[in-house]
Simulated assay, not measured.
Amino acid sequence: MSDKKANAIAYWKENIKYLSILLLIWFIVSYGAGILFKDALDTIRLGGFKLGFWFAQQGSIYVFVILIFVYVRIMNKLDKKYGYDEE
């Protein structure tokens, strides 16, 4: 196997690992906080709204947007690490 192909395989393995972690975080926030843990979170108020309701309506969207920026930052570092930032 050539070095270039081995480099590409390692790059994609690491990319999939980061993507899986970020999607798991989003799932936990959107499904967990908005549905599974809603009753427990509703005991806390945020801006006059119950926290479980807030996560179901807006919080998961905010977390998703933040995760997009985190993903961009991680991918920029990953591109530099594997030499794909030059193209």
Rank of each mutant, 00 (worst) to 15 (best):
M1T: 10
M1F: 11
S2G: 15
D3G: 15
K4M: 14
A6S: 12
A6R: 13
A8Y: 05
I9R: 13
I9A: 12
A10V: 01
Y11M: 10
K13N: 13
K13I: 03
K13P: 01
K13F: 07
E14S: 07
E14N: 07
N15Y: 15
N15A: 14
I16D: 10
I16W: 13
I16Q: 09
K17P: 01
K17W: 12
Y18K: 06
L19H: 09
L19D: 07
L19M: 10
S20G: 15
S20C: 13
L22C: 05
L23H: 04
L23K: 02
L23S: 04
L24M: 14
L24P: 00
V29W: 01
V29M: 05
V29D: 06
S30G: 10
S30A: 13
S30D: 10
S30N: 08
Y31D: 04
G32N: 06
G32S: 09
G32F: 08
A33H: 05
A33F: 15
A33V: 02
A33M: 14
I35H: 11
F37W: 15
F37D: 00
F37K: 05
K38V: 07
A40H: 10
A40E: 08
L41I: 02
D42I: 04
L46W: 10
L46G: 02
G47H: 04
G47V: 12
K50Q: 12
G52A: 11
G52Q: 08
F53V: 10
F53E: 06
W54R: 07
W54E: 04
F55K: 01
A56G: 03
A56M: 06
Q57I: 07
Q57S: 08
Q57R: 09
Q58P: 00
Q58Y: 13
Q58D: 05
G59C: 01
I61D: 05
I61P: 02
I61Y: 08
V63G: 01
F64H: 03
V65D: 06
I68W: 06
I68K: 00
I68A: 05
I68M: 11
F69T: 03
F69D: 05
F69N: 03
V70A: 09
V70M: 03
V70L: 05
V70T: 04
V72G: 09
R73V: 06
R73M: 12
R73E: 14
I74C: 06
M75W: 05
M75R: 10
N76E: 13
K77R: 14
K77P: 06
D79W: 08
D79V: 07
K80R: 13
Y82S: 12
Y82F: 15
G83C: 11
G83N: 12
Y84L: 15
D85F: 04
D85W: 05
D85T: 04
E86C: 04
E87L: 15
E87T: 15
